[in-house]
Design a binder for these strands. Structure first.
Ligand SMILES: [Zn+2]
Ligand SMILES: [Zn+2]
Ligand SMILES: [Zn+2]
Ligand SMILES: [Zn+2]
Lengths: 162, 162
DNA sequence: CGATAGAATGATATAACATAACAGTCAACG
DNA sequence: CGTTGACTGTTATGTTATATCATTCTATCG
């Protein structure tokens, strides 16, 4: 993999996400504890999604933590819609969209640099819902994830030499 | 189309799938070994997707096998497009569609009875591809999975009492 | 037929991801 | 204060997947 040109992970993005989290927790009377903040900060600072064990390793550099502690923080952040789980990676990534859209986004996961792009899916989801209603299925949660090559990586090696 | 009467583990469905596998392997000069046949038969006979360890347990009733052996059979069957992996379940299910369609199907996974329904997604995928091209992403593989209540289960307990 | 090369499987170990169970800590509130 | 509920610590275990190397099978060729 080539991680030279990482996007995100900037101080700007981290600060934005952290202050958003603070506001949200104040408003909803949730507790934005040091552990939760720390986990969210690590995710916001990473150019690619991190697994729970990745996070445990990073937090451990400062303070001993067991994986289960990280999983609890992740659960909180997922419930608060501050992060998403990337199922095909067993990993977690901060949410890119400030007030979160209603429809489940589509995640584009780059096999080359590992970055994840989150794109809204209102229209597709609407179209799909017709077909799904036809077969009588009542959806509760969705996973739309696509693996491939992101624009930046495609540009750098155009022929996509596997 | 009517998807209600899906693979419920009937001998009919199993036989169909197994003979399809045999034909396909003969045509492509692949080896449809006893282990691969056995794993496919177990999947075809199950009303819901099975994990590799589920499969190992079932095969073990007749003959001792290690999980890795099952994983190898699954890999073969996945490559041959005879089965699919249901990512949100870490489980495997036979493919319902005889000559497999080109687009990645959408899988509807029932949280109540565990069954999986495979539906084509040509239009959905087509719509998505426009947006994805806009951001310069080159897709290689896709996961579209929706969790919810299937028609049969919705019928049995209409109010969907959680 | 017997040698042999490649594919498949066996066997063991370990990695990677996730949860259970219970004890201790801390903050809020009356 | 003392109680209560939320959070975290600690240990153990469950679940899913892969690495590595030895052995067996199968097709092919001399
Ligand atoms: Zn989001
Ligand atoms: Zn990339
Ligand atoms: Zn299929
Ligand atoms: Zn059902």
């Amino acid at each position: 993999m080539n991680f030279e040109r990482r996007n995100t992970g900037s101080k700007r993005a981290s600060a934005t996400l952290l202050s958003r989290a603070e506001r949200l927790c104040r408003d909803k009377n949730l507790r934005f504890t040091p552990m939760r903040r720390r986990v969210l900060a690590e995710l916001a600072a990473s150019p690619e999604p991190l697994t729970a064990y990745d996070l445990a390793d990073r937090v451990r550099e400062e303070k001993r933590v067991a994986p289960v502690t990280v999983y609890r923080a992740l659960e909180f952040l997922l419930d608060a819609k501050l992060i998403h789980r990337i199922v095909i990676r067993n990993a977690y990534t901060p949410c890119d969209h400030a007030p979160h859209h209603d429809a489940t986004p589509v995640f584009l996961v780059c096999t080359h640099c590992g970055t994840v792009e989150e794109i809204p899916s209102e229209t597709f989801q609407h179209d799909l819902s017709g077909t799904i209603a036809e077969v009588g299925f009542r959806p509760k949660s969705r996973v739309f994830e696509i693996e491939g090559e992101c624009a930046r990586c495609a540009k750098r090696q155009p022929a996509s030499a596997i």
